[in-house]
């Protein structure tokens, strides 16, 4: 066996490997971006909305993905297609079928992607049940799963939220999307569940629309063990302009210094004066905390400035 008989095949193998990689790259780069084809798909969907003529069902997975993405973006920007028209489009072009299947079988991001696109397609009961059986770990997938289920059964909001999980930072996103979908959120029922996610949703609604009618329920949420719920309740009370009383100060007594500082800054951002927060100061001064007189010190950073931030 001489060097040449070893060297030549090795060289060929290396060149083959390099060639395969280059070919893949060339195809990927040569495809360029998808903006033009997305525009064309959007135009087809617009014609469907105005003339009623369904676009032809996509033949490839990529074309189907593009149609789903165009429909999603179109629905987020224009109230063009009614739920019936979207449902019909999803059924006739097999979008719903393939997206539900991808949500069930895909990895974390594939599931989140499919659920996001499904959130604008009304589902039948069968598909809704299949979505309900999913328990994705990815927070965005959880968000869209909840959105789909609540839009499908808006009379079961409390039940759906009680049986689901969602990180607290995504609750405002969920509430905003439910508002866009015109879903009525039954705050009293959600407060009555005493469970984390329904309470966070209800507190967010109260804060967003400054619903003073629910002030007592919000005070009730201050006594719950969940730190996230208590912080959301404090946020809601700050938005409502509630008087800072013993109940609020008691709720913060279990918090650490950093968290109490965060709460005081929250109230300051909502326009409370140092005098309105005097109970905080007294409680902090009683334990010799560095946060005594914090509100007055923060407000002096805005002295001689009449603007409220």
């Amino acid at each position: 066996m001489n060097a040449l008989s070893i060297f030549l095949p090795l060289c060929l193998l290396l060149l083959l490997a390099e060639g395969v990689l280059l070919l893949w790259l060339a195809l990927r780069v040569g495809r360029g971006d998808d903006t033009d084809s997305l525009r064309q798909t959007t135009a087809r969907l617009y014609r469907y909305a105005t003339d009623g003529g369904l676009p032809p069902p996509p033949r490839t997975a990529r074309a189907r993905q593009q149609m789903a993405e165009s429909l999603f973006s179109l629905t987020r920007h224009l109230s063009l297609l009614s739920p019936t028209e979207r449902e019909r489009l999803g059924r006739r072009c097999s979008l719903t079928y393939h997206l539900v299947r991808r949500a069930e079988r895909g990895g974390a991001f594939a599931t989140a992607d499919a659920l996001q696109l499904l959130s604008v397609l009304p589902l039948s009961d069968d598909y809704a049940e299949r979505i309900a059986r999913l328990s994705p770990a990815e927070p965005l997938a959880q968000l869209y799963r909840l959105l789909i289920l609540v839009c499908h059964s808006p009379d079961r909001v409390a039940e759906i939220l009680s049986g689901s999980s969602l990180p607290a930072y995504l609750v405002p996103h969920l509430v905003a999307r439910l508002e866009e979908c015109r879903v009525e959120i039954p705050c009293r029922s959600l407060f009555a569940t005493r469970q984390s996610l329904p309470l966070l949703v209800a507190l967010r609604v109260v804060a967003r629309y400054e619903l003073a009618d629910y002030e007592e329920e919000v005070f009730g949420a201050l006594t719950l063990p969940s730190g996230e719920v208590r912080f959301a309740a404090l946020t809601a009370l700050a938005k409502l302009g509630a008087t800072v009383d013993r109940r609020i100060v008691e709720a913060t007594s279990a918090m650490t210094l950093d968290e109490r500082r965060g709460v005081m800054r929250l109230f300051l951002r909502e326009g409370y004066s140092a005098r309105a927060l005097h109970l905080f100061d007294e409680a902090e001064a009683a334990v010799g905390s560095p946060l005594a007189n914090y509100a007055a010190r923060r407000l002096s950073l805005r002295k001689r400035n009449l603007i409220k931030i």
């Binding site: 997305l38 525009r39 959007t42 135009a43 617009y46 973006s73 179109l74 920007h77 224009l78």
Partner: peptide, 13 residues
């Protein structure tokens, strides 16, 4: 920012 927003609005207008 979204090309689909621009496209859909240009179709409407």
């Amino acid at each position: 920012p979204s090309p689909i927003a621009a496209e859909s609005l240009s179709l409407v207008l």
